[in-house]
Design a protein around this nucleic acid. Structure first.
Lengths: 139, 139
DNA sequence: TTACTACCCTATAGTTTTAGTAGATTTTTA
DNA sequence: TAAAAATCTACTAAAACTATAGGGTAGTAA
């Protein structure tokens, strides 16, 4: 299951990407527009800023704004920051690899091999989708 | 993330499918062979039995055994029983559909459309993979 | 009848998720 | 300089979920 953190984060990023300019947008505006708890969103935007997706400005006229171009932000990056591993099992994760406690041999593990396929197919989609792609409703 | 429940369930099913006959196998034997907490496995096998995957026999020489042929058990069925929805968001789930609280319109929701693709790709794999396929190490 | 084994119910420690509360800090404006 | 506007930070907490353990029941075979 996708966490609300990730869901809200994607929605917020998409909202920012859909605006005409890159002027700062207040948390409150995003939260209201996307029906998100403002305080929760606050922490999400903060981690997005810390990871180089967003810039921020304090004081009047302040807020958050996109730092990169939407078509330069692949979903892989967003997912890994907000959701964590894309793989469903740590032993098939590229960026969050971890060995299983059970499982003497990964190469013969049925779960491992199945989840490897699932990861690859998801990865393919996330890699080929950028924030800009999310703006166009159809397809 | 895949729950250990699902992981253990798949391993147990694969173990049973790999045996020559369909004689009852004790929980303890499966648990030991797959390094699984016996008590936890107990409840997993129970739900697999209740959902028509396994048969059981009590008393001496008792245990669990496969009821169907491995190539007649698609991964979709196993996943849905043990893990729940295959979709990462309820609003794109075929069997566990639920509307989002936020989100006025699904068709324009960026998360919805992205997760629809992810679900489809995962579904394709699970549908085309049966328990029998998990037995063969390579591919 | 005795040993064996699945069945069933309950409890619980631990973790993760999803926030809420309270205030500090920085910037702009009057 | 003071007030207002906004982000930033830390702490807390309820709720849900996960993984497991314990102990008793009931059916089956020798």
């Amino acid at each position: 299951m996708l966490s609300k953190k990730t869901k809200y984060g994607i929605k917020a990023l998409t909202y920012l990407a859909g605006l005409h300019d890159r002027e700062p947008v207040q948390i409150a505006e995003i939260a209201k527009h996307e029906n998100i708890s403002q305080k929760f969103l606050e922490s999400i935007l903060l981690t997005l800023r810390r990871n180089g997706f967003l810039g921020s400005k304090k004081g009047k006229g302040g807020g958050y704004y996109l730092i990169k171009e939407p078509h330069d932000i692949p979903m892989t990056a967003i997912m890994r920051i907000l959701e964590g591993p894309i793989a469903m099992v740590p032993c098939v994760s590229l960026n969050f690899y971890e060995k299983c406690d059970d499982c003497p041999d990964e190469t013969t593990c049925p779960v491992h091999n199945l989840m490897l396929k699932v990861r690859d197919s998801a990865l393919k989609i996330y890699r080929n989708t950028t924030l800009a792609d999310l703006l166009y409703k159809d397809t």
